[in-house]
Design a protein around this nucleic acid. Structure first.
Lengths: 342, 342
DNA sequence: CCGCGGTTCTAGATCGATCTAGTAGATTGG
DNA sequence: CCAATCTACTAGATCGATCTAGAACCGCGG
């Protein structure tokens, strides 16, 4: 009677709502009402049912629950396991989704697991909407997908029929350039993202804001990429000739590569060289890095994306949402050297 | 007739097996047989059903499917979003699980999402077993969990009632020490993992293998940790006094910190200092790092873990499985300098 | 014409929850 | 005292699949 481990009816099986109802001496329907906190149950009965449920160790079977109630309240997420910034967004999405009453289903994209497959898993599980972080699929595929389920693209530009939540890259880059210019820098170079998605836009923003600052003649763009190695390679080229006094990198990982190359070359940051990253990822915040970076505000993006999904499920039209990034100044930027080094 | 977009019965809803059956003029049961490739259907009918399913854009509802068939074939995984090595294992688990006929359900652990919550989500979804990568819960919690569902712990030591799949840390460390000794190093230091789970074991293995190599007098252990900053801090201490000629780090991230500190201090790797990491993560393989590291063989661990889960579901006893790691020599280790530097 | 084994197919129960419609029982009002 | 109203509760259908038991049909030997 007092054991509370095994339901007497079926040995060794996880207890069901029927078990709880039987044990508490009520109908399944009433037990259901109590379990989901709906109204229509007496106070005394409610407590009795909750107590028996606790004793039996009952946990509602989410598959059965979702099957019956049309609204699954499930949000699917595709993300790339090897991208640290994706991880940060995922964590924020959990929080935002929970607050909005959604469950979250993750599906990883990786070298051996293409995005298409990741999305299919989500559809099979019955998600109500799919949040895709930096989707790599083509526009046609995304459009086809969007016909089956609301799709919210995170960090990428909008496509027809799908929501897009991203931050204003141009504004972010402009903030970086202006910050450096206000510190007296003139030779501000840019290591771009190569073939990465947002690379072209950030490159253009760099050129634009250099001209705005009256530094059109100092524009210097090097081909980089999204990873540390790309930063290293570009920095090698950069430091070989007449090095600039500051560099705006495509993202944090690229910036980290530049920092490493600078350290190896014996330069002091930020005395000899200022470096700005992009993403404000954990990497940037690490104690030994303290990288000045443009913050994409993972939490804000996540909340906006979840809000978007909720709006779409209330059958509103797709929107493109653009958040304003903020520059976070840390220890890798400082005043321009009085006399150019070397 | 030829549209193939909307099932005629219920507009705008995803088609069900009943829709397919009706459209193909067969019973639901037969349609089910065809869809899951069971035997008992005529060749002609089989093709007709598959064709109509394709036209209607039918996809089986996994919730309903799993609800009915007791075997959910679902594997739950808890992992930490910010740990790169976890990501690698996750990806390998996908492959291994698919090959073994399992579906995979991910649940992330993070700063704002404790492991307990991550596991509960998995249980609610009805996973048949839980694979936990580097579980942080206490033994009591794990034991309680293991009473509800088979638990396989990855990368951590075994606990009563749960399987554990890990690699032989002692052997890995020994391989690192022997490698360095064979290169002529004598002053081989160890930067440990601080409070991290496997730290004590690796530290002991370092001491043991140093003695085996006749270098008992050169033993030197510094407190480190699992992250880059820990490596930096320890390296600062190390390089301040009489620096060793080689360092065995607790893991790759720690080793990376040591490398950075070395570069900043103007040392050349491996000429002045050899460094060995642990995990053989993506980080170690990066072009500009090329860190000599002990490979934990993510794919092997993943396969073993999935096999373990399968065995447990055939009601075999919990086991502790230990894989042999392998040392991957890259560019951060070399012969000991003829004359100690400085 | 009957019985038999084999294949192909179907009706109906079932998984564990939710939801609709409706039934007891107490309370209130005229 | 009967009708109306409200609350507490229940029976049974339902979601979309699987699974069991059995029906319909085939050819074939006796």
């Amino acid at each position: 009677m007092e054991r509370g481990q095994q339901p007497d009816s079926r040995p060794g099986r996880r207890p069901t709502l029927a078990d709880v109802a039987a044990a508490a001496g009520v109908s399944r329907a009433l037990a259901s009402i109590v379990m989901r906190g709906a109204e229509g149950a007496g106070e005394a009965t409610r407590e009795r049912v909750l107590e028996t449920a606790r004793q039996l160790g009952y946990r509602p079977d989410s598959r059965a629950r979702l099957l019956r109630s049309r609204r699954t309240r499930l949000l699917g997420i595709t993300f790339t396991v090897s991208e640290p910034f994706h991880g940060e967004i995922v964590e924020s999405i959990y929080a935002a989704a929970e607050a909005a009453g959604f469950e979250v289903l993750l599906s990883a994209v990786g070298a051996r697991r293409p995005e298409g497959r990741a999305v299919e898993t989500l559809l099979d599980a019955g998600v109500e909407a799919a949040l895709m972080i930096s989707p790599s699929s083509g526009e046609a595929d995304l459009a086809a997908l969007a016909r089956q389920v609301p799709v919210i693209s995170l960090l990428s530009a909008a496509a027809p029929g799908i929501d897009a939540v991203r931050s204003d890259d141009a504004a972010g880059i402009r903030a970086a350039v202006q910050h450096l210019a206000s510190l007296g820098h003139r030779d501000i170079a840019h290591v771009d993202g190569g073939d990465a998605v947002a690379s072209a836009e950030r490159r253009a923003a760099y050129e634009g804001s250099m001209r705005e600052a009256g530094l059109g003649e100092c524009i210097r763009i090097l081909r980089g990429g999204a990873h540390e190695a790309d930063g290293i390679a570009a920095a090698g080229e950069l430091l070989a000739g007449r090095p600039p006094t500051a560099v705006v990198a495509f993202n944090d990982r690229c910036a980290l590569g530049i920092l490493e190359a600078a350290w190896r070359a014996g330069l002091t940051v930020p005395d000899d060289l200022s470096v700005v990253g992009y993403d404000d990822s954990q990497l940037a915040r690490l104690d030994h890095v303290r990288l000045t970076s443009v913050s994409q505000d993972a939490a804000g993006l996540a909340e906006a994306a979840v809000a978007c999904a909720a709006a779409r499920l209330r059958s509103e039209e797709p929107v493109g949402l653009v958040l304003q990034p903020a520059l976070v100044v840390r220890s890798t930027t400082g005043p321009a050297p009085e006399i150019p080094p070397r």
